[in-house]
Design a protein around this nucleic acid. Structure first.
Lengths: 336, 336
DNA sequence: CCGGATTGCGCCATCGATGCAGCATGTATG
DNA sequence: CATACATGCTGCATCGATGGCGCAATCCGG
């Protein structure tokens, strides 16, 4: 690759500023990092150096600064994606909350690729992160194992692990309630009580397992049993959900429990790619501001991102003993 | 704040590894950073040190490493938000493309707050970023001025500046084509040819100005003129768009040109919060996978993120002379 | 068996910021 | 006028990794 910067102009350092100001680098350092009162530097000098720094466009070299300091105050997060409402909002709120607490957030997106997750976790260790939030990681315990030798704690978000504290949604309860509602609506609108389809996610992951359990529980309450051919789980991919639906020969009156807005993208594409389906209704575990207004939508189970992140930061600041798992209630949002 | 890490266990360094392996830190360094063949280190030692590093869970200290190296390979991006499809996808693709090129992406989200943008830009300078992508910055030239003393180039994305190269959408052309389509559809569906509403964005920003120009041009072609009371521009905020619509007393047959999915959130909330509006149609500049299937939607003008980022990286690798502005055609996606 | 080449590795200065331990001054106290 | 003390600053070692330079050992051709 070509050089990014042909003219790697020297950035001013505290030595340059010291020379200009006719003082020592230590004084400049103290002035610019705010410890100057403690170090009994005169306000006059502080003001002068501050002005010179401003003029020269000085910016501290974090590499040098962090190398010397004992704490980096860097907090890392790995997250599968940015481009859906759930993870996008997590990333955005995480940054804001970290900054409020005087921490430097560093986020990286791993495309739900286990190898990338591991690589990203190592990179966070290299950045000297003090703590790593593993969001929706395919193998949270693997991440924990990478952090351990560096003495870094990790905290699992969205998908739980066994080695470190985890903050997840109440997937069972949320799924049960959402399923009840879809069943009720199907019965009310069409007079039919029948098992729903469960669409999206992967059978191996904890969230899907728990949601499936809630889904089955709500069916069982009504004396319905769920056969596995009603569960279409091909991972978190819109395209795969769409293709699976196309292959499934579904018609008439049906209800879908859609396990994530990602799968829902496939569902709505399938709905709009084929014949009219007046007898179709769905509910979705996860929230999206536009999906909530789609005509067939019955309601969305919104994960409480604020509450989850609050708990995450509580764990960051006050490490709990052991590896507790916190289940956060979801917020139900009926559509329309 | 409480200590993040009560037991700041020492992370292993090359000195530790050298001691264990009975060799020198330089050898360890060369082995672990891949320059060992050049330095004529024996494969046997390399293999042994590699194994020890693995066992000890060694991770290079990037702060120390970057301090010493001449190039950081860090490429920064500031972006207003993560939680909508446009910016989320930009962030995600930017990361992937940077990594493909052997660069370290660092992204930070500025909530469209000018002060935060400036602070974030300074932070990027402190990270020794080699280049900064200013996405949708409220004042791109201010960012450029922060980068300049450090000898760092910035590249503007989405909103253009005058000091540095900019990559933006063809806002005029896209808006004109979208407006034409909405006008046509309103006429076809309702037999009425009337001026549309323009909703969202802010009058001061370049993109809104250009889109408004396209909007007016398409109206002018049909002999229509656009009065300013038809332009509801209260920034990029769903709540403000919603409130403004509620105050506007709109009814009957109307067409909306919605300037961003953020404003569209407000529009759909307003639509669903009031009486049925069978005579309403809208088109939106920006794309969203769910919004595209909303019943009143006529079509979405999708910005070509891939093409824009490709151009951005071209500028990163081969700095152009001057401050060119590249206008990228949008991709029109009719709804349904 | 000797000299030059090659192999394999260690020494040390360096990157920029930090903070401890001084070291001059000035200023109050007995 | 000597002593204590506060004020305002400087010198220096340090954080961990890097890479130029150089040194010892081995090898090979003549």
């Amino acid at each position: 690759m070509a050089a990014i910067n042909q003219t790697p102009q020297k950035r001013p350092t505290i030595y340059d500023l010291a020379q200009i100001a006719g003082t020592s680098p230590s004084a400049v350092s103290a002035i610019l990092n705010g410890t100057w009162k403690k170090r009994r530097i005169s306000a006059a000098l502080a003001e002068r150096v501050g002005r010179i720094a401003e003029e020269q466009g000085y910016a501290v070299n974090l590499q040098a600064s962090l190398l010397r300091r004992e704490r980096s105050r860097i907090i890392g997060m790995i997250i599968p994606k940015y481009d859906n409402r759930y993870f996008g909002a997590i990333a955005e709120q995480f940054e804001a909350m970290a900054r409020e607490r005087g921490l430097f957030p560093v986020i990286t997106c791993t495309q739900r690729d286990p190898a990338l997750e591991v690589e990203a976790a190592r990179e966070m260790m290299s950045y000297q992160a003090e703590c790593l939030i593993a969001t929706g990681a395919t193998n949270p315990d693997r991440i924990a194992a990478i952090c351990a030798p560096a003495g870094v704690r990790s905290i699992n978000l969205d998908l739980p692990g066994t080695a470190m504290p985890s903050v997840v949604s109440d997937n069972f309860g949320g799924a049960r309630d959402l399923t009840r509602l879809i069943l009720d609506r199907i019965e009310r609108d069409f007079g039919i009580l029948g098992p729903l389809y469960f669409i999206g996610g992967r059978a191996q992951d904890h969230n899907t397992t728990e949601r499936l359990r809630g889904f089955r529980a709500a069916h069982a309450e009504r004396g319905l049993s769920v056969l596995s051919d009603r569960c279409i789980m091909h991972g978190y991919s819109a395209a795969k959900s769409e293709a699976a639906l196309a292959a499934a020969e579904i018609d008439g009156t049906v209800g879908f429990f859609v396990n994530s807005t990602i799968a829902l993208e496939g569902v709505v594409r399938w709905i709009h790619g084929g014949p009219e389906r007046p007898g179709l209704r769905f509910g979705c575990f996860d929230w999206d501001p536009f999906a909530r207004f789609l005509p067939q939508n019955i309601g969305m189970m919104r994960q409480d991102i604020g509450a989850m992140l609050a708990k995450v930061f509580e764990f960051v600041e006050h490490p709990p003993p052991g590896a507790p798992r916190i289940e956060t209630p979801c917020i139900f949002e009926p559509a329309n």
